[in-house]
């Protein structure tokens, strides 16, 4: 065999192995969590409240809390995100200002999640006096997912062909009419996909809500945006670190982890599927 063919064989094997190892390790995580979590998941587990010092019962308040936090984060981040993206792609005069905004978006995307938590604690919980609440947590999560929503919206807006804008403007439409009636409707499905992806991310985040929204246990469901909430990812953490009955609580944590995993995988799976379909549609 030629030497070059041999080195190719060895090289390719290494690359192939790295792919396999990566998949197997993550596969192992999914396997163990599913295997143990499936034992406890039932309708009652999903819809019930925790009972007997968190050793029995369900995770409904945590699911509801996570749901509220996500809705709040989206309500806050969506207008800022889409408007920011519109400004950058549609009105952007490629100026210094735009470059500064673009840079701050990229940097905001890289800020560690626990730092967002610190920010939320200082600004929303204390300065604005919202306390540890759904509102504080939503705003903190909202700022965290903002860069993602902006980039996804930008990608969707850029994908709208320039000829659509020209056709509209040539008919005597103003720029705002063109954006509102042609550009945004065409980009809507792409923006939507980006939002779903962000929801997936926000649902699993724990560090930003640690000191802004989450609590170990509430009696029943939150009654206002100023209530503390239980949240699914925090619930897992709390059961493992603050629990007093490790055996039963680890099982509940397994169940919660599986539910969270399924939730996040379903949401991001949907987004990835939609995005691939949109891209294929564009190529056709």
């Amino acid at each position: 065999m030629k030497r070059s063919t041999l080195s190719q064989g060895i090289g390719f094997t290494f690359l192939y192995l790295s792919m396999i190892i990566a998949l197997i390790s993550v596969g192992a995580i999914l396997f163990f969590i599913t295997k143990n979590g499936i034992k406890i998941i039932s309708w009652e587990f999903l819809t019930g409240v925790p009972r007997r010092a968190m050793t029995q019962g369900g995770i409904a308040p945590a699911l509801v809390g996570t749901f509220y936090l996500i809705i709040g984060a989206i309500l806050f981040a969506l207008p800022f995100g889409v408007a920011g993206a519109v400004f950058l792609t549609e009105y952007s005069p490629n100026s210094v200002v735009v470059n500064i905004i673009r840079m701050s978006i990229n940097n905001l995307a890289g800020v560690p999640s626990v730092v967002f938590g610190l920010f939320g604690l200082s600004i929303f919980v204390r300065f604005f006096g919202f306390g540890v609440s759904i509102l504080s947590g939503s705003l903190t999560l909202g700022i965290m997912i903002l860069p993602g929503i902006i980039s996804a919206s930008q990608e969707a807006l850029i994908a709208v062909p320039q000829s659509m804008r020209e056709a509209s403007l040539a008919l005597g439409a103003t720029q705002w009419q063109t954006i509102r009636k042609i550009v945004i409707p065409s980009a809507l499905s792409g923006i939507f996909t980006g939002v779903i992806l962000s929801v997936g991310r926000a649902a699993g985040e724990t560090a930003p809500i640690l000191f802004t929204a989450a609590t170990f246990y509430t009696r029943g469901f939150p009654d206002s945006i100023f209530s503390e909430v239980m949240a699914l990812p925090y619930h897992i953490y709390a059961l493992m670190t603050e629990g007093t009955h490790p055996e039963e609580q680890t099982l509940i944590a397994y169940g919660s982890a599986l539910v969270l995993l399924l939730l996040v995988l379903m949401i991001s799976g949907l987004a990835i599927y939609l995005r691939q379909r949109q891209r294929r549609y564009k190529l056709a």
Binding site: G84, F87, L88, I101, L108, V111, I143, T174
Partner: peptide, 29 residues
């Protein structure tokens, strides 16, 4: 048209504002 454009500009600046806000808070605290 110009008012709308400025409106979008202001919202777009929010990212910068948040980044700046985070910096200020971390230094202050």
């Amino acid at each position: 048209e110009n008012i709308i454009k400025s409106g979008f500009g202001v919202l777009a600046f929010s990212s910068l504002l948040f980044l700046f806000g985070i910096t200020v808070i971390l230094f202050k605290e």
